[in-house]
Design a protein around this nucleic acid. Structure first.
Lengths: 195, 195
DNA sequence: TCGTTAATGCTACATCCGTCGCGTTAACGA
DNA sequence: TCGTTAACGCGACGGATGTAGCATTAACGA
């Protein structure tokens, strides 16, 4: 088996079409039946791509979900700018809540898959690190405005605002209570001001 | 099949002994091989309890882990009292970090199992709700001391302090950086003071 | 102590999951 | 256009997982 450095990939026509069919099947199954139903066999049947192909290219459900996340990430994300740190964090939190409660439930599926699939774990972490890095500007803007202490750590503030949502919604499986986005955004904004 | 209301259970000798052997095997496998290795077959083999019995009583790995958590919970937990909210939250966080990084990795195993097993999901949520309820006193003490605003929500403060640890360590699989317990404890304590 | 039956062990079975080796199709660059 | 071979499809296989029905053991209360 030649290693990757010596193989010329064929990303064109058929291969791209196969990927599209498979990822479309993943999204459909996720939306209609939830993440437990995303298996290689189910995706293969739905997409009419042979199951051996799915195993070879994606390895397991986590690989499928990670690729679905990659495909969705092709659209650039920019953090909100509402004029206040509290407003920005509330808006970020609203997006997290939408991701955790909306359809298709990609984030929850990836979290679940991440415990069994290195590909899913890696995709999830990279996604979140990217989001936190991009969102850091909401804290640096707040510092410039005097809305946050000069020594406030942007990443820690963002994690403090968003992590409770993952904990409450994904891990504790609580319903999304009204005001949830605002509650932890307000606490994180107050923390950023207090140092 | 008579329903549960009409069945007289036999919790004695053999049944208790079976449970003990099984839960001991769960702990051993978790400690030595990690949560992926906790399967019904592995536990059955290790404990010398027949696999059918394990399926019938515990249903799946999640059920085994949930029962392991129940057994461990028979020791009462009390929140720390260090004299300051920041200190208390730091101590609580240190315990969460120990649970997430120490051996046996019960919490991480339960989180993983909770996506496939209602019993695990339920046990995890009940455990955390109990912990948050018991720990609420650290915030009410802080309010009485003037260490926190009178309108600080104890549960939200506790979630804000601890959730980042689950996010960083369990979901993002980051290493436990030095000062992690203190960092999010300090932010939550500042948030509690700022309202 | 005895009768009832919950709890357990055993064997067999079906389905799902993952892999293998071979044949076929089609994506490339020359 | 042609040759090479990556990508895909197919059928077969073995192991893991979960269930069903029957037999055996032992936990209860009377």
């Amino acid at each position: 088996m030649p290693d990757d450095a010596q193989v010329t990939r064929r990303p064109g026509g058929r291969t791209a079409h196969t990927r599209e069919r498979v990822l479309s099947a993943v999204a459909a199954i996720l939306t209609e039946e939830g993440f437990d139903a995303v298996s290689v066999d189910a995706v293969a049947a739905r997409s009419r791509v042979h199951r051996t192909t799915v195993y070879r290219r994606w390895r397991d459900p986590g690989g499928l979900l990670a690729d679905a996340l990659d495909a969705a990430r092709e659209q650039a994300w920019e953090p909100p700018d509402t004029g206040s740190l509290r407003g920005d964090l509330t808006a970020v939190n609203a997006q997290v809540i939408e991701a955790l409660t909306g359809r298709p439930p990609v984030t929850t599926a990836l979290i679940a898959a991440s415990f069994r699939s290195p590909a899913a774990a890696h995709a999830l972490r990279a996604f979140w690190e990217d989001r936190y890095a991009r969102a850091a500007v909401v804290v640096t803007r707040a510092i410039a405005r005097g809305d946050a202490a000069p020594d406030a750590d942007p990443r820690a503030v963002l994690v403090a605002a968003t992590a409770p949502l993952f904990h409450e919604l994904a891990l504790m499986r609580a319903p999304a209570a009204p005001g949830l986005a605002e509650r932890y955004a307000a606490l994180a904004a107050a923390a950023a001001l207090g140092g």
